[in-house]
Every structure is written in C-alpha cells, then in structure tokens.
Design a protein around this nucleic acid. Structure first.
Length: 844
RNA sequence: GGCCUGGUGGUGGAAUUGGUAUACACGCGAGACUUAAAAUCUCGUGGUUGCAAAACCGUGUGGGUUCGAGCCCCACCCUGGCCACCA
C-alpha cells in the first residue's frame, strides 16, 4: 500500500519529456557541448537484454549528471543492424533480413524508450538505412581514391559455416568469432584497407588518450610493434634471385648472388644460426631452385601443409615437421653454410616468411633441430642448451668479434655492426595486418566497385615482381559518387552459397551490370558486401549531422545540408571528438581500432579538421587531473569500459539459456528500480551478478523514499540530517563524476536510513536537493516527487546542488588512541579542541 | 607460453589512497504488528574463548619497510579476461 505506481508515473513523464523537448539539444549553437556516446547495439537477438540495459543506464547516468553540471549533453542512439550477426539471426528464424530488420527496429526502439535514457531520438540512425550506407560506400570510395583500399589475391580466413572470409581480428583461437566454427584458409581475391599504414600512429595515439589500461594494452599487443633486424643470407648455389620483398627486387644489382631475407628480434644470436626455415607459401616460390632428387618430397610437404587448417597446425605444435629443401645459404656473419628447410611452424604473413634457426636460444628451433639432427651452437652463456633453449640474458660467446659483449645491454652495438657489415638492416615489424573488408554475404552495403573487362585489358600490367602479395586493381573503378548509394537489391535467395561467391551474384542483371565509370562500356559490379565493422567505424561522426522526424515510425530524414560529405562541417567541429565513449571491453581490438583508423584517415584527407583543438573538448579526465591532449588526433579521447552483467556466475548466453530480458522487471518494478539495482550490484567498471533478491531490496528502498517524502517533510531539516545531506551531496557528486554509482547509491541509502529515524525530518527545499541527487539514476520517481514538492519542470534541467563544507564537519570528533597501530581506546571531543595537545593527553 | 585484471564476512561489495577493516545491500536469526501470511518496523550478525566485561586472531601465502600495511616493496599461489608456433 506504500508502493508507488511506477507504470503510471513512467508513462506520464516519458510523454511529458518528449512533448516539452527536455532532452533536445541545439546542435548548431550549443555553448558547452558534451557528446555522451554509448556503443550502439546490434539488434540480432530477441531484443534488448539486461546487459545492454546495464551499459546504457550507466552511460545515461553520466550524461544526466553532466547535463545537471551545465553541459549541453547530446546522447544519441541507433542500431548496428547491418551485417553477419543480424543476417545469421534472420536465417536462423527463417526470415528475410530486411523483413527482420523492421521487426527488430521496432522492438529495440520500443524497449530503449522505456529504460528512461535521455536519448536524442531525432538523431537516431540505422546502418542498413540507404541514407546511412550511402556514406559507408562513400567512405570506401574515399579509401580507394586515397590508395588505402586495394584488391589482392591472398590467403584469408574462411568460415565454412558463415561461408565468408573474415578479418584476422574476427578469428579467435582459430575459430569464427560469430559462430565458433573452426576457420580454414582460402586463397581468393579480396578488398583490403591498408590499416598497416597507420600502425605507428595507432600505437602512438594510445599514449594520448584516457582509456582503460587493459584496452590500451590489448591494442598495443594487437598492433605488435617489434624492433629488430632484417638479416640477409646469401644463396651460393644457382644464379637467380627470388626476392620476397619488393624493395629488393627493384635493385638490379642484387640479382646475384641470391639473398634470402629474414626478420629477427635477436640479431645477437646470428652466429648461432645453424639452419634456415621458410614458410610453405614461401617455399612454393622457391621450388624451381630445389634439386631434382628433393623436389617430390618438398612439393608433397608444401601441398600437405597448405591444406592444413590453422587448428591442425596448432595441434602439431609439439611435433614440428619440415623438409630439407636441398638449398644452402651462407650466413654472412659466420660464413657457415646453412641448410634451408620448409616447415609449417613458420608463418607467411609475419616478417618475411623466413626465419633463421637458432636452436640454442629459441625453443621452437631447438625442437626442430633435435628432430632433424641439426647443430646446436651456444652463443649466449646462461643455460644448458643441451637440455633446452636458453632465451635469457648473458655473455656472448662463439661469435667472432662480438664475444664478451653482454646481452641485452650491447644490442645496440651488435645492430650497428650488422648494418656496418651490410649483413642486414634495422627493421620495425608489426603484427597488425591489413583489414580484409570483403564479405561474401548478402546483408551489408555492396562494395561500390565496378569491374570493366575492357579497361582491364588495356591496363598497364602492374609490377610483376611481387609474387606473394600481389595487388590487382586493374580494371576496377569506384562507382561515381553521385550514383551512390549502390542500393542493396532485394533478392529472395540471399543465403550464403559457400562456393566463395557472393549471394549478390544472383541479383537481377539490371543491378549486376552497369556502365564502366571510366569508359562507359558494360561492366560488372562487385558482388561482395563490406564488413560490418566498416558500418560501425564511423557512425559516431554521423549522429550529430542527422535530423529525423520525431516518431520512430516515420523514417523520413528531415534533412541537414549534406553535400559531398556525410558531416555537417560546423556541427562536426562543435561536437567532435566524442567527449565520453562508454562501452564494453569486448570491442578492444575490433571496433575501437577500426574507428581510430578511419578517423585518422578522414583527418588526413582534410575532411575532418585535423589541426583544430576546440576548447570545449578539453574535458577534465577522470583519473588524470589534466586536460585531454589529443585534440583532433583521436576520435575518443576518453573511453570508459564497463563491466559485464553475469548470471549465476557465468556470462549470459543463449546457449546457456540464462539471458535476462529487462521487460518483465520493468513491468513489475519499473525502470527506476531496475536502473538503480543494476548500478548497485557492483562497480560499473566491473559488472556483477544479477539476482532477483537484490531487486527486491532496491524496490524496498525506493518505496521507503516515496514514503519519507509523504510523511517526513517539514519546514526545517533536523540538524543531524542536514549534515548527512550535505555529506551526501558531496559524495554523490564525486561518485557520479567517476562512475562509482554503487557507492553513490550507498550514500543515498545512508541518508534515508538516518532520515527514517525518529525525530529526523527534512525541509521541502532539502528534499528537493535529495531528489536532484537521485535524478540521474532514477529519473522517473525523482521527477514525480519533485513535481509533488512543487519544483519547476523539469528536475533534469536543474543545476546540481551545492554543499557547504562547514556544515559537513561535525562539532564533535571521535578521538582515537592507537598503540602499535591497534585501537586502544576512543572518546569524543569538540572539534576545536583536537589541537590542544595537553588536554588530549590528559583525557587519554 | 606472453600480457592485463582481481583475491576482504555466508553473498555482492565499502575503506577519505599509509591511520577505528568489513560502509551500503542481500541472506540468515530473534522480536513487534497480524487470526495467519505478505508488507512494514526494531534488534542482532567476521572467527575463537567467555555468563559477562573483555581478550586474542583476522583482508590469498611467505617475507620486508613503518609507530602503524587491505593499501607500499620482494617472492610465490590461485581466479577471471585478452592474445598466442609473431621469429
């Protein structure tokens, strides 16, 4: 009977907020813009789950708090509904993705409107909207025009279940990130973005941004910068060169003698190299130099190795296999002859695809040497290389003039010597590889490229000399910008085929064939679509430039002058980079890396103002008490990674059947209770375990608040309670600004615990202050009680209350006596007397 | 194997950053109201010993620094996460 009617209240205020435009922000003229962004959801499953709600609520509280601190807060929402995840879901339930998208859209927006966030509904976007993907395609064309998109035949990850290629980042432990099927390798033509051109900048930028350490570290590891040396090995036999690096091939003087180049981070062990190993893919190109009697064996091995999947290669980890190719190289440092092996433990796509085998100081090489009876030469003192490889530090031996040098201190001297003797040169390698954009799927933006056979014939053949990493753009042209979007055609049979061909091959001829943008002849469209991560790599740039009609039903775009670029220049300058980006850590290396890359490229092309550093974006950091230094060099100067909501100790997942749908909790308890409960479970950074009993507790709390406002409002706040309230104002403010919502709520509870005691009453004015503290977390009930107290509409437009430092301190203080750090006694004294040493000693 | 987190009551978690360890909540126990239940309210709740006052022990383990350590230093053991034959 003390309970309040949350359904009525929530409906009432939702409508009121919408009608009065409480959360609308003037994008063109905002004085203190604060772009509060949360990672948008992909509407693939049955609807929003509690995990999404957790993310959005935590982000929203931050936005609401900032708004009460006087910022013009922009908090947009949208749907990442294009891509494999949505398509797979549609296939599973037997619907066409386009049809399913409409259903999901309605469902998601409906749910999202109920959770009580201060969304800017007019700026919502959906990645499958042609108005949106027109610009995704535009981005592709820009990438192409700027030499960052290219097509090449290469060995890529292939998921047999999703029937498409995948980017490296989408393969986890040799399995498809989406469906967990074991991936294989497939050699096909694919479009790539040259993210590797930005490897160094992507790495350096990390120092300038305020992100959780674990996400920064994940990106650093993914980029994987390694400084080392490229060492040349001379091939004595034969007279032809098989260069692997294009750089070498352009120099005619190195056609003789043969040089094999390998990358190493341990040039100090050069004298210990007793053999060479090349990757199977590399060996294939060396075949013609293999002596006749070995050829069969080598060929057979290569064939077998290339057929292996990643997973089986891994299983063979312990027993390394390989074949002696019968080729010998000269170690230019020691002048020893080294046999060349092919082995599948060497990977083609890292370094040069060839390594020197130093069995004494590398465990993999040691295993290999043991198996094939190769020499083990110790060059660093420290371990027992007869038993296992020693990778530690120590004195150099058996290495000519390098003897007596100490590792790792003398690495510099060694590299200098290597360069001086022209054995090799300094080299930085990155683990990061180019971003494979092509997907042989239906539900995505068609890659806006056109192939013209006529043009291809006349094209000057591109450089012949790069046999392994061939770029083949000949005959390909981007669709003219004015013809975008290349609309995704409606086709009935949209399911992936599995033969490496895109479903769009089955599209109508009208769509499939078009005019060559260059010569006008009949030409064929690219039938692959682009990766989902391209859709989401730039959405945050689009939000502020969108203006839609207010109702989700009518999808008419109300227009904002957009010509030649998807961004309104003035608005973009005013609102970007994003002030606070809030999301889960699961996108540490995918979305968050791609977005940074796209942003940097847009800056370089002059589309984004690379040099500007608007004052308004110097947002004080959470951890560091200084301002962001990144300016425009980064899209997300501040990122907050929230934790995960789990259920019964494990991650929520469909397969475990422990997905929690927020709807029934909102129905039963109201959005406020659920919001508050979710935030109370634990630190927002860490997440927590969802329990029904906990929700009961929060319901109890809000009922109590409701009752206190009903029964214990008076004209003057009692003294003790006044002090508590002032303390609460201080603490809650600090906690909200640092995402410590759980302790903020605890403080509010402490305040009510005192309030409910006999004789404690609150004045209307102080009651309003209390409501303001609660407003970001529980927006509905706060608004309701606020209006009941006669507060001016809306509570969410009020300034955050101030506190009086003097009132916080109590007059009496507890004096604690410690002996050896242990509590030995305590008594209460007046605050002013604490400084009086004599009296204190006497009292003690 | 590498990197990154974290380890505090029965449970989720607090702790002003070196100063009363366990705030707040859940759970549990006792009581009040009620014919009864629900709801609400009150009290109790780290461990051991003790009738009690109280004493001792307690923040993963072992050392160290300090008048004083959950917090700082060294070594180790687990949990969780990310990456992984990357030369």
């Amino acid at each position: 009977m003390f309970s309040f009617n949350h359904k009525k209240i929530e409906r009432k205020w939702r409508e009121e907020w919408d009608d009065k435009g409480v959360y609308e922000v003037d994008l063109e003229n905002a004085k203190k813009p604060f772009y509060n962004l949360m990672m948008f959801p992909y509407p693939s499953a049955e609807g929003l789950h509690v995990g999404n709600m957790y993310a959005f609520t935590g982000a929203d509280i931050y936005g609401r708090y900032k708004a009460m601190r006087g910022y013009d807060v922009f908090e947009p929402i949208g749907l990442d509904g294009f891509g494999i995840h949505s398509e797979n879901y549609a296939i599973k339930i037997g619907k066409h993705p386009k049809e399913q998208a409409k259903i999901s859209e309605k469902r998601f927006y409906d749910q999202l409107s109920k959770i009580g966030n201060r969304f800017s509904w007019n700026n919502r976007l959906e990645t499958y909207d042609p108005e949106y993907y027109k610009w995704t395609q535009w981005l592709f064309v820009k990438m192409y025009e700027n030499g960052l998109a290219y097509r090449k035949k290469s060995l890529v990850n292939w998921c047999p279940s999703c029937k498409t290629v995948l980017a490296d980042a989408q393969v986890e432990q040799g399995k498809c990130e989406r469906c967990k099927t074991e991936t294989t390798k497939k050699e096909t033509y694919q479009w790539f973005f040259k993210i590797t051109d930005y490897a160094q900048r992507l790495l350096d930028g990390l120092d300038k941004i305020d992100w959780p350490n674990k996400i920064k570290t994940a990106q650093r590891n993914w980029i994987g910068r390694k400084e080392g040396v490229e060492i040349d090995f001379e091939i004595k036999k034969g007279s032809e060169l098989v260069p692997i690096k294009s750089g070498l091939a352009s120099k005619p003087e190195v056609t003789e003698p043969l040089i094999l180049t390998c990358f190493t981070t341990r040039p100090d062990t050069l004298y210990g190299a007793t053999f060479m190993v090349v990757a199977p893919e590399y060996a294939k190109k060396l075949l013609k130099y293999v002596p006749e009697d070995k050829k069969d064996e080598v060929e057979k091995y290569i064939k077998k190795a290339l057929k292996k999947t990643e997973q089986t290669r891994k299983k063979d980890e312990k027993s390394k296999t390989g074949v002696d190719m019968g080729i010998k190289v000269i170690n230019l440092a020691s002048n020893k002859k080294l046999p060349v092996f092919v082995a599948d433990y060497v990977l083609m796509d890292y370094g040069s695809g060839a390594v020197m085998g130093v069995p004494a100081h590398d465990q993999r090489d040691w295993d290999f040497a043991k198996k094939y009876n190769l020499d083990i030469v110790e060059v660093i003192k420290g371990g027992d290389v007869k038993k296992q490889a020693y990778a530690g530090e120590g004195k150099i031996v058996n290495s000519g003039k390098w003897n007596e040098l100490m590792m790792p201190n003398d690495m510099g001297k060694i590299i200098d010597d290597v360069e001086e003797r022209k054995i090799g040169k300094r080299k930085v390698e990155f683990r990061l590889r180019d971003w494979c954009i092509s997907r042989q799927r239906y539900w995505g933006p068609p890659i806006p490229m056109v192939y013209c056979e006529k043009c291809a014939k006349h094209a000057t053949p591109e450089s012949k000399e790069v046999p392994l990493r061939r770029v083949t753009n000949a005959g390909w042209y981007p669709e003219k910008l004015e013809n975008l979007p290349v609309v995704l055609p409606d086709i009935k049979d949209f399911k992936p085929t599995g033969d490496g061909k895109s479903p769009l091959e089955k599209a109508d001829k009208d769509w499939l064939y078009t005019k060559c943008p260059k010569c006008g002849a009949k030409a064929k469209r690219e039938t692959d679509v682009s990766d989902t991560f391209l859709d989401s790599s730039w959405y945050f740039l689009r939000y502020p430039s969108i203006k839609k009609s207010a109702t989700p039903e009518s999808k008419q775009v109300l227009l904002r002058r957009v010509t030649g670029s998807p961004f309104d220049k003035k608005i973009t300058e005013n609102w970007l980079p994003v002030n606070a980006y809030i999301g889960g850590a699961e996108h540490a290396v995918l979305h968050l890396m791609y977005s940074r890359f796209v942003w940097m490229a847009l800056c370089d092309w002059g589309i984004l103002p690379a040099s500007a550093t608007p004052e308004s974006h110097s947002v004080p950091l959470r951890r560091v008490k200084e301002k962001h230094k990144s300016g425009w060099s980064e899209p997300f100067p501040f990122l907050f990674g929230h934790g995960l909501i789990i259920k019964d100790g494990s991650k929520m997942s469909k397969s475990k059947g422990n997905i929690i749908n927020p709807d029934k909790y909102i129905e039963k308890y109201g959005a406020d209770v659920l919001r508050m409960y979710l935030m109370f479970i634990g630190p927002y950074e860490q997440g927590g375990d969802f329990k029904d009993t906990g929700i009961q507790g929060m319901k109890k709390f809000l009922d109590r608040v409701w009752r206190l406002f009903d029964e214990k409002i008076n004209n003057k706040t009692s003294k003790k309670l006044k002090r508590k309230l002032e303390q609460t104002i201080k603490k809650v403010g600090e906690d909200m600004g640092s995402f410590n919502y759980n302790t903020a709520i605890a403080k509010l509870m402490e305040c009510t615990n005192l309030w409910k005691e006999d004789g404690e009453v609150m004045s209307e004015q102080d009651g309003q202050k209390f409501l303001q503290l609660m407003a970001p977390i529980a927006p509905f009930i706060s608004e309701e009680l606020w209006s009941k107290l006669g507060g001016e509409f809306s509570i969410h437009n009020q300034k955050w209350p101030k506190y009086d430092e003097k009132l916080i301190e109590s007059e009496k203080v507890i004096f604690v006596i410690q002996v050896n750090g242990k509590l030995r006694g305590q008594f209460e004294v007046d605050r002013d007397e604490v400084e009086n040493e004599k009296k204190m000693i006497k009292l003690a």
